[in-house]
Design a protein around this nucleic acid. Structure first.
Length: 353
DNA sequence: AAACCGTGGGG
DNA sequence: TCCCCAAGGTT
Protein backbone atom coordinates (compact mmCIF):
# COMPACT_ATOMS: atom_id res chain seq x y z
CA UNK A 1 0.00 0.00 0.00
CA UNK A 2 1.28 3.47 -0.89
CA UNK A 3 1.44 6.30 1.66
CA UNK A 4 -1.24 8.16 -0.28
CA UNK A 5 -3.56 5.16 0.05
CA UNK A 6 -2.97 5.06 3.81
CA UNK A 7 -3.72 8.79 4.05
CA UNK A 8 -6.94 8.33 2.12
CA UNK A 9 -8.05 5.51 4.41
CA UNK A 10 -7.37 7.59 7.52
CA UNK A 11 -9.21 10.55 6.01
CA UNK A 12 -12.24 8.40 5.22
CA UNK A 13 -12.34 7.13 8.79
CA UNK A 14 -12.01 10.64 10.24
CA UNK A 15 -14.90 11.81 8.06
CA UNK A 16 -16.97 8.96 9.42
CA UNK A 17 -15.94 9.83 12.98
CA UNK A 18 -16.92 13.48 12.54
CA UNK A 19 -20.43 12.30 11.78
CA UNK A 20 -20.69 9.34 14.17
CA UNK A 21 -18.50 9.94 17.25
CA UNK A 22 -20.19 8.54 20.33
CA UNK A 23 -20.65 10.83 23.32
CA UNK A 24 -18.77 9.85 26.46
CA UNK A 25 -18.19 11.71 29.75
CA UNK A 26 -14.41 11.76 29.21
CA UNK A 27 -14.42 12.60 25.52
CA UNK A 28 -14.01 15.96 23.79
CA UNK A 29 -16.12 15.67 20.60
CA UNK A 30 -14.37 16.23 17.25
CA UNK A 31 -16.02 19.61 16.69
CA UNK A 32 -14.68 20.97 19.98
CA UNK A 33 -11.23 19.49 19.32
CA UNK A 34 -11.08 21.37 16.04
CA UNK A 35 -11.85 24.54 18.01
CA UNK A 36 -8.69 23.91 20.01
CA UNK A 37 -10.19 22.30 23.10
CA UNK A 38 -8.01 19.53 24.56
CA UNK A 39 -9.12 16.91 27.05
CA UNK A 40 -7.67 16.92 30.58
CA UNK A 41 -4.86 14.30 30.68
CA UNK A 42 -6.05 13.21 34.14
CA UNK A 43 -9.50 12.39 32.82
CA UNK A 44 -8.08 10.66 29.74
CA UNK A 45 -5.78 8.56 31.91
CA UNK A 46 -8.53 7.66 34.39
CA UNK A 47 -10.96 6.68 31.65
CA UNK A 48 -8.38 4.61 29.77
CA UNK A 49 -7.40 2.64 32.87
CA UNK A 50 -11.05 2.00 33.69
CA UNK A 51 -11.69 0.90 30.10
CA UNK A 52 -8.97 -1.76 30.16
CA UNK A 53 -10.86 -5.00 29.39
CA UNK A 54 -14.05 -3.25 30.50
CA UNK A 55 -17.07 -2.03 28.56
CA UNK A 56 -17.99 1.63 28.14
CA UNK A 57 -21.37 0.95 29.77
CA UNK A 58 -19.73 -0.45 32.90
CA UNK A 59 -17.27 2.44 33.18
CA UNK A 60 -19.60 5.45 32.86
CA UNK A 61 -20.87 5.68 36.45
CA UNK A 62 -17.52 4.76 37.98
CA UNK A 63 -15.86 7.54 36.00
CA UNK A 64 -18.40 10.09 37.23
CA UNK A 65 -18.03 9.02 40.86
CA UNK A 66 -14.22 9.13 40.71
CA UNK A 67 -14.06 12.55 39.06
CA UNK A 68 -16.71 13.97 41.41
CA UNK A 69 -14.82 12.74 44.46
CA UNK A 70 -11.27 13.35 43.16
CA UNK A 71 -11.33 16.11 40.49
CA UNK A 72 -7.54 16.25 40.02
CA UNK A 73 -4.63 13.83 40.11
CA UNK A 74 -3.42 15.56 43.29
CA UNK A 75 -6.78 14.88 44.97
CA UNK A 76 -6.54 11.22 44.01
CA UNK A 77 -2.91 10.96 45.15
CA UNK A 78 -3.95 12.23 48.59
CA UNK A 79 -6.80 9.75 48.96
CA UNK A 80 -6.82 6.87 51.44
CA UNK A 81 -6.10 3.46 49.92
CA UNK A 82 -9.32 2.00 51.35
CA UNK A 83 -11.39 4.83 49.86
CA UNK A 84 -10.07 4.21 46.35
CA UNK A 85 -10.38 0.43 46.59
CA UNK A 86 -13.94 0.83 47.88
CA UNK A 87 -14.86 3.19 45.05
CA UNK A 88 -13.41 0.70 42.53
CA UNK A 89 -15.31 -2.23 44.05
CA UNK A 90 -17.37 -4.08 41.44
CA UNK A 91 -15.36 -2.91 38.44
CA UNK A 92 -12.93 -5.84 38.57
CA UNK A 93 -9.22 -6.32 37.87
CA UNK A 94 -8.34 -4.69 41.18
CA UNK A 95 -4.63 -4.40 40.37
CA UNK A 96 -5.78 -1.48 38.24
CA UNK A 97 -6.96 0.38 41.34
CA UNK A 98 -3.73 -0.31 43.21
CA UNK A 99 -1.69 0.86 40.20
CA UNK A 100 -4.00 3.85 39.77
CA UNK A 101 -3.06 5.13 43.21
CA UNK A 102 0.62 4.33 42.73
CA UNK A 103 0.54 6.19 39.40
CA UNK A 104 -1.23 9.26 40.81
CA UNK A 105 1.28 9.44 43.65
CA UNK A 106 4.22 9.03 41.24
CA UNK A 107 2.87 11.86 39.06
CA UNK A 108 2.66 14.15 42.10
CA UNK A 109 5.97 13.07 43.61
CA UNK A 110 8.13 12.73 40.49
CA UNK A 111 6.44 14.93 37.86
CA UNK A 112 5.16 17.97 39.76
CA UNK A 113 1.56 16.82 39.50
CA UNK A 114 1.60 16.87 35.68
CA UNK A 115 1.34 13.73 33.56
CA UNK A 116 4.26 13.14 31.18
CA UNK A 117 3.25 14.42 27.72
CA UNK A 118 4.89 11.69 25.65
CA UNK A 119 4.18 8.00 25.11
CA UNK A 120 7.70 7.17 26.25
CA UNK A 121 7.31 9.12 29.48
CA UNK A 122 3.88 7.66 30.20
CA UNK A 123 5.22 4.11 29.78
CA UNK A 124 7.36 4.52 32.90
CA UNK A 125 4.29 4.84 35.15
CA UNK A 126 2.57 1.92 36.93
CA UNK A 127 -0.52 0.56 35.22
CA UNK A 128 0.29 2.28 31.92
CA UNK A 129 1.32 -0.20 29.23
CA UNK A 130 1.73 0.05 25.45
CA UNK A 131 -1.95 0.61 24.70
CA UNK A 132 -2.71 3.11 27.46
CA UNK A 133 0.46 5.13 26.85
CA UNK A 134 -0.42 5.47 23.18
CA UNK A 135 -4.03 6.37 23.95
CA UNK A 136 -3.12 9.15 26.40
CA UNK A 137 -0.36 10.52 24.15
CA UNK A 138 -2.64 10.58 21.13
CA UNK A 139 -5.89 11.71 22.73
CA UNK A 140 -4.55 14.25 25.23
CA UNK A 141 -1.50 15.51 23.30
CA UNK A 142 -2.08 14.60 19.64
CA UNK A 143 1.11 12.58 19.44
CA UNK A 144 1.01 10.28 16.40
CA UNK A 145 1.05 7.18 18.60
CA UNK A 146 -0.61 3.95 17.45
CA UNK A 147 -3.24 2.40 19.72
CA UNK A 148 -3.69 -1.36 19.50
CA UNK A 149 -6.54 -2.69 21.59
CA UNK A 150 -8.96 -5.52 20.93
CA UNK A 151 -10.95 -3.37 18.51
CA UNK A 152 -7.90 -2.41 16.49
CA UNK A 153 -6.72 -6.03 16.37
CA UNK A 154 -10.07 -7.06 14.93
CA UNK A 155 -10.30 -4.17 12.45
CA UNK A 156 -6.73 -4.62 11.18
CA UNK A 157 -6.99 -8.40 10.91
CA UNK A 158 -10.01 -7.94 8.65
CA UNK A 159 -8.84 -4.93 6.66
CA UNK A 160 -5.51 -6.62 5.87
CA UNK A 161 -6.71 -10.23 5.92
CA UNK A 162 -4.37 -11.42 8.66
CA UNK A 163 -5.25 -15.09 9.21
CA UNK A 164 -2.56 -16.07 11.70
CA UNK A 165 -4.07 -16.46 15.17
CA UNK A 166 -3.65 -14.07 18.09
CA UNK A 167 -1.70 -13.47 20.21
CA UNK A 168 1.15 -14.54 17.90
CA UNK A 169 -0.08 -12.17 15.18
CA UNK A 170 -0.12 -9.10 17.41
CA UNK A 171 3.24 -7.69 16.26
CA UNK A 172 2.07 -7.91 12.65
CA UNK A 173 -1.25 -6.25 13.48
CA UNK A 174 0.61 -3.50 15.33
CA UNK A 175 2.84 -2.92 12.31
CA UNK A 176 -0.15 -2.67 10.00
CA UNK A 177 -2.01 -0.35 12.38
CA UNK A 178 1.01 1.96 12.49
CA UNK A 179 0.99 2.31 8.70
CA UNK A 180 -2.47 3.90 8.89
CA UNK A 181 -1.88 6.19 11.87
CA UNK A 182 -2.03 9.75 10.48
CA UNK A 183 0.13 12.71 11.51
CA UNK A 184 -2.92 14.96 11.56
CA UNK A 185 -5.63 14.43 14.19
CA UNK A 186 -4.05 11.23 15.60
CA UNK A 187 -6.15 11.58 18.77
CA UNK A 188 -9.43 11.62 16.88
CA UNK A 189 -8.12 8.86 14.63
CA UNK A 190 -7.32 6.61 17.61
CA UNK A 191 -10.82 7.05 18.99
CA UNK A 192 -12.28 6.60 15.52
CA UNK A 193 -10.70 3.16 14.93
CA UNK A 194 -11.90 1.98 18.31
CA UNK A 195 -15.42 3.35 17.71
CA UNK A 196 -15.43 1.58 14.36
CA UNK A 197 -14.56 -1.71 16.02
CA UNK A 198 -17.09 -1.18 18.80
CA UNK A 199 -20.04 -0.23 16.63
CA UNK A 200 -19.54 -1.53 13.07
CA UNK A 201 -16.62 -3.96 12.82
CA UNK A 202 -18.03 -6.04 15.68
CA UNK A 203 -16.94 -9.60 16.58
CA UNK A 204 -20.11 -11.18 15.17
CA UNK A 205 -22.33 -9.86 12.40
CA UNK A 206 -20.21 -6.86 11.43
CA UNK A 207 -22.21 -4.10 9.73
CA UNK A 208 -20.09 -4.06 6.58
CA UNK A 209 -22.82 -2.34 4.58
CA UNK A 210 -22.30 0.95 6.40
CA UNK A 211 -18.55 0.65 7.03
CA UNK A 212 -16.33 3.49 5.79
CA UNK A 213 -13.66 0.87 5.01
CA UNK A 214 -16.04 -1.45 3.19
CA UNK A 215 -14.31 -1.20 -0.18
CA UNK A 216 -10.66 -1.66 0.87
CA UNK A 217 -11.45 -4.45 3.38
CA UNK A 218 -9.66 -7.58 2.16
CA UNK A 219 -11.51 -9.97 4.50
CA UNK A 220 -14.86 -8.72 3.24
CA UNK A 221 -13.70 -9.21 -0.35
CA UNK A 222 -13.04 -12.84 0.56
CA UNK A 223 -16.23 -13.15 2.62
CA UNK A 224 -14.33 -14.25 5.74
CA UNK A 225 -14.62 -11.11 7.88
CA UNK A 226 -16.73 -12.75 10.59
CA UNK A 227 -14.09 -15.47 11.13
CA UNK A 228 -11.34 -12.97 11.97
CA UNK A 229 -9.33 -12.47 14.02
CA UNK A 230 -8.48 -16.10 14.71
CA UNK A 231 -7.50 -16.81 18.29
CA UNK A 232 -5.60 -19.54 20.06
CA UNK A 233 -7.81 -21.95 21.98
CA UNK A 234 -8.43 -21.26 25.64
CA UNK A 235 -8.01 -23.67 28.52
CA UNK A 236 -11.11 -25.01 30.27
CA UNK A 237 -11.96 -23.46 33.63
CA UNK A 238 -11.57 -25.71 36.67
CA UNK A 239 -14.02 -25.55 39.60
CA UNK A 240 -12.67 -24.48 43.00
CA UNK A 241 -14.45 -24.60 46.33
CA UNK A 242 -14.13 -22.83 49.66
CA UNK A 243 -15.90 -21.62 52.80
CA UNK A 244 -16.77 -18.09 53.94
CA UNK A 245 -17.47 -17.31 57.62
CA UNK A 246 -19.71 -14.31 58.13
CA UNK A 247 -20.27 -13.13 61.71
CA UNK A 248 -22.31 -10.21 63.00
CA UNK A 249 -22.09 -8.73 66.47
CA UNK A 250 -25.06 -7.47 68.51
CA UNK A 251 -24.09 -3.84 67.77
CA UNK A 252 -24.18 -4.53 64.03
CA UNK A 253 -20.41 -4.78 63.51
CA UNK A 254 -19.42 -7.26 60.79
CA UNK A 255 -16.35 -9.51 60.73
CA UNK A 256 -14.25 -8.64 57.68
CA UNK A 257 -10.67 -8.94 56.50
CA UNK A 258 -8.51 -6.82 54.19
CA UNK A 259 -7.12 -9.20 51.55
CA UNK A 260 -3.42 -9.43 50.75
CA UNK A 261 -2.07 -6.79 48.36
CA UNK A 262 -1.19 -9.27 45.64
CA UNK A 263 -3.21 -11.90 43.89
CA UNK A 264 -6.93 -12.35 43.35
CA UNK A 265 -9.03 -9.47 44.76
CA UNK A 266 -5.78 -8.08 46.17
CA UNK A 267 -6.23 -5.15 48.53
CA UNK A 268 -10.00 -5.52 48.65
CA UNK A 269 -12.25 -5.92 51.67
CA UNK A 270 -13.81 -9.36 52.10
CA UNK A 271 -15.17 -11.89 54.55
CA UNK A 272 -12.87 -14.33 56.29
CA UNK A 273 -12.57 -17.50 54.25
CA UNK A 274 -10.75 -20.77 53.74
CA UNK A 275 -8.37 -21.46 50.92
CA UNK A 276 -10.24 -22.27 47.70
CA UNK A 277 -8.81 -25.77 47.39
CA UNK A 278 -11.85 -27.65 48.71
CA UNK A 279 -10.07 -28.62 51.94
CA UNK A 280 -12.24 -26.48 54.20
CA UNK A 281 -10.40 -24.73 57.03
CA UNK A 282 -10.70 -23.32 60.52
CA UNK A 283 -13.36 -20.77 61.46
CA UNK A 284 -12.05 -17.44 62.78
CA UNK A 285 -14.16 -17.77 65.96
CA UNK A 286 -15.57 -20.65 68.00
CA UNK A 287 -19.28 -20.11 67.43
CA UNK A 288 -22.34 -22.18 66.55
CA UNK A 289 -21.93 -21.63 62.81
CA UNK A 290 -24.85 -22.56 60.62
CA UNK A 291 -24.98 -22.92 56.83
CA UNK A 292 -26.63 -20.12 54.87
CA UNK A 293 -26.42 -21.23 51.25
CA UNK A 294 -23.69 -20.95 48.67
CA UNK A 295 -22.33 -18.48 46.17
CA UNK A 296 -21.36 -19.43 42.63
CA UNK A 297 -19.07 -17.04 40.84
CA UNK A 298 -16.89 -17.23 37.76
CA UNK A 299 -13.52 -15.51 37.58
CA UNK A 300 -11.31 -15.11 34.54
CA UNK A 301 -9.78 -18.57 34.80
CA UNK A 302 -11.88 -20.66 37.21
CA UNK A 303 -15.37 -21.24 38.62
CA UNK A 304 -15.82 -20.84 42.37
CA UNK A 305 -18.37 -22.37 44.74
CA UNK A 306 -18.35 -20.85 48.21
CA UNK A 307 -20.23 -22.37 51.14
CA UNK A 308 -21.55 -19.65 53.44
CA UNK A 309 -21.48 -20.06 57.22
CA UNK A 310 -23.05 -17.47 59.50
CA UNK A 311 -23.19 -16.82 63.26
CA UNK A 312 -23.93 -14.12 65.81
CA UNK A 313 -20.92 -13.13 67.89
CA UNK A 314 -20.79 -11.71 71.40
CA UNK A 315 -19.40 -8.27 72.13
CA UNK A 316 -16.35 -9.88 73.71
CA UNK A 317 -15.49 -12.00 70.66
CA UNK A 318 -11.80 -11.87 69.68
CA UNK A 319 -11.42 -13.35 66.18
CA UNK A 320 -8.25 -15.19 65.21
CA UNK A 321 -8.49 -13.57 61.77
CA UNK A 322 -10.06 -10.33 60.56
CA UNK A 323 -11.70 -7.63 62.63
CA UNK A 324 -15.18 -6.40 63.45
CA UNK A 325 -15.98 -3.34 61.35
CA UNK A 326 -18.54 -1.02 63.04
CA UNK A 327 -21.93 -1.00 61.39
CA UNK A 328 -21.63 2.58 60.12
CA UNK A 329 -18.20 1.87 58.60
CA UNK A 330 -19.30 -1.29 56.79
CA UNK A 331 -20.68 -0.58 53.33
CA UNK A 332 -21.55 -3.58 51.13
CA UNK A 333 -20.75 -1.41 48.10
CA UNK A 334 -17.07 -1.50 49.13
CA UNK A 335 -16.98 -5.26 48.55
CA UNK A 336 -15.88 -6.96 45.34
CA UNK A 337 -18.80 -8.62 43.60
CA UNK A 338 -18.22 -12.17 44.82
CA UNK A 339 -18.19 -10.92 48.42
CA UNK A 340 -21.19 -8.67 47.85
CA UNK A 341 -23.11 -11.72 46.59
CA UNK A 342 -22.26 -13.49 49.85
CA UNK A 343 -23.37 -10.47 51.86
CA UNK A 344 -26.67 -10.19 50.02
CA UNK A 345 -27.40 -13.88 50.53
CA UNK A 346 -26.64 -13.88 54.26
CA UNK A 347 -27.90 -10.46 55.37
CA UNK A 348 -31.39 -11.81 56.03
CA UNK A 349 -30.07 -14.90 57.81
CA UNK A 350 -28.20 -12.88 60.44
CA UNK A 351 -29.90 -11.29 63.41
CA UNK A 352 -30.29 -7.57 62.86
CA UNK A 353 -29.31 -5.32 65.74
C1' DA B 1 6.40 -15.75 27.93
C1' DA B 2 2.55 -17.99 29.39
C1' DA B 3 -0.29 -17.35 33.39
C1' DC B 4 -2.77 -14.54 36.18
C1' DC B 5 -6.22 -11.13 37.05
C1' DG B 6 -13.19 -9.54 37.49
C1' DT B 7 -17.33 -8.58 35.90
C1' DG B 8 -21.56 -8.05 33.22
C1' DG B 9 -23.87 -8.25 28.85
C1' DG B 10 -24.92 -10.41 24.44
C1' DG B 11 -25.69 -14.24 21.37
C1' DT C 1 -26.84 -22.42 30.09
C1' DC C 2 -22.60 -21.49 28.45
C1' DC C 3 -19.26 -19.23 25.87
C1' DC C 4 -17.39 -15.06 24.13
C1' DC C 5 -15.62 -10.84 24.90
C1' DA C 6 -14.46 -5.80 26.49
C1' DA C 7 -10.43 1.12 25.07
C1' DG C 8 -4.62 -4.73 28.81
C1' DG C 9 -0.89 -4.80 32.37
C1' DT C 10 2.18 -7.28 35.25
C1' DT C 11 5.11 -10.97 36.48
Amino acid sequence: MRDSDASALAADLLDWYDRNARSMPWRVPPGDRKAGIRPDPYRVWLSEVMLQQTTVAAVRDYFRRFTDRWPTVADLAAAEDAAVMGEWAGLGYYARARNLLACARAVVRDHGGVFPATREGLLTLPGIGPYTASAIAAIAHDEAATVVDGNVERVMSRLWLVTDPLPASKPELTRLAAILTPATRPGDYAQAVMDLGATICTPRNPACGICPWRDPCRARAEGVQATLPRKAEKAAKPVRQGVLWIARRADGAVLVERRAERGLLGGMLGFVGSDWDGAGGDAPLDLPWRPAGEVRHTFTHFHLILTLMVAEAGMDARPRRGEFLPRDAFRPADLPTVMRKAHDLTAAALASP
